[in-house]
Amino acid sequence: MNLVKTLRSSSILGSIAALTVLLFGGWSGAVIGWLLGTAAGYLATHDRFVPTPKTGAQTGIQAGLALGVWIMAASLIEGLLLRPLSGRAAIPLGQTWLYALVGFGLAVASATLMAAIQGLANPRQRQATLLTLAFILIIFPFADRLAQTGWIATVIQIQIFAMLALGLNIPVGYAGLLDLGYAAFFAIGAYTTGMLSSPHLGIEWNFWIVIWIAAGVAAIAGVILGTPTLPLRGDYLAIVTLGFGEIIPIVFRNLTDIRIMEPISSLLATLFNRPEMAICLLGCEETFNLTNGETGINRSGDPGCRSLAASALIITCRGTTWCWCWWCSRCL
């Protein structure tokens, strides 16, 4: 029974992996085999009792083999059939077999490792699982680079959306407050980052400082919205947040030509019909452009090597021939 379950979960992962390999080809089989192999090893063991690492490893091998077969088949189909048929440059037979076997091997190895970890005693099992996941997160950019799959941009998007979902889960999931304007805080954070770290306003602070300021500003905006709306419940809260979520984009889109006059003096100036009496506070000669309208604030600071080097929190990588972080190659 357990074997059937293992095969089923591995085959679901295997079909995803096969589709990926068919789409991307090349070393993508190795990367996806490594990632999904870990997942398959965990899925095969997470819902049953695993007494020792050895039994875990046995289950993991089964899961890894099932996954590996999918990847190997997909690699071979891609290399031997799809490539010639779609008219792309053919690759040597040996290379195709190399892709297929490396993918297969990595799938089996990582599934076995992950499943074996699940057989450890309790505190060690938890630590080792987290360590493996951390290892995957750190190694993934390098692997992505080596395998030339180019998934890092997509993965970053995925992580940003995952963070958004985690944040939305706090009011909606834990507190049961339906917040339809959550994206407005996303916008507030983004615009704070943009204003403080781009040439647009002439403030080009370091990304690693700005990120905390942006979080703080968005949190303050949340408090400002939350305080008056706290007595409201249910649908009314949903409506207020919806309205807020509509106002914020309009505000950011339109804060392009600001001119602030001191109101009392300008009232007097209107009454006595003497325009020179009005005191101007902001945007006097030409109107002040805060958000740059539909174009948005371009070239905001990025968390890349320049930021890292300047922040001096982490080993500087400029000027060294070998850079340990993959993105640093841009500024070497």
Partner: peptide, 22 residues
């Protein structure tokens, strides 16, 4: 006022009404 800000005014009224007289 400004046609660009009309929606903001409308929703501002919505928020104010809900806060003070739900």
């Amino acid at each position: 006022l400004s046609s660009r800000w009309t929606d903001a005014w409308v929703f501002g009224v919505l928020v104010l009404i809900l806060v003070f007289r739900p």
